[in-house]
Amino acid sequence: MKSDIILAGVGGQGILSIAATIGMAAVDNDLHLKQAEVHGMSQRGGDVQSHLRVSSKTIASDLIPRGKADLILSVEPMESLRYLPYLSSQGWLVTNTTPFVNIDNYPEMDEVLAKIKEQPRHIAIDADKIAAEIGSKRSSNIVMLGAASLFIDIAFEALEKGINTIFERKGQKVVDLNVEALRAGRKAAEAIKAQLN
């Protein structure tokens, strides 16, 4: 298997927790993994991305070449579009629809959503709403991971286990909420994908 994933968002939105969860699951399954993160200045509200590569074979580059990503997983709608040059012609774009507006010139939401809908293979869900419904607003990143899990060739149970490991030190309640968020995200994406088919 091979999954080249661009994780996208804004500094502080928790894409590193997504990366860490997939990373744990990959290592547990004896898969090769390389995950390039952005630390430092951009984490202060700037656009951030992580290149996450999982493969059953040795991985050469820490960065995904443009045009080679199998998946863009974005926790913010405008940010999902910033990395289109990386997406392969067969790749999926999976994004949250709740914007993170911290700039004055944020584009019109209708136009952003229209652009996302133009993409041949996309799943757009309101992860913030789903996270709020299960009573864990801060878990919208994990909702998005759940949605994207449809397109990542790692057993769903392994991701659940990854959540357990990553959030363990924050207590069982946080673990449970995030597992619920993961499942809710997957369910939402499954529903949309079923309609597409």
Binding site: V10, G45, G46, D47, R66, G67, A69, M78, E79, L81, R82, L84, P85, Y86, L87, S88, S89, G91, N102, I103, N105, Y106, P107, E108, E111, V112, K115, Q119
Partner: peptide, 11 residues
Amino acid sequence: GADVPDLVEAR
């Protein structure tokens, strides 16, 4: 892949 759409602003 596709170009970055014009509406995407720097953040």
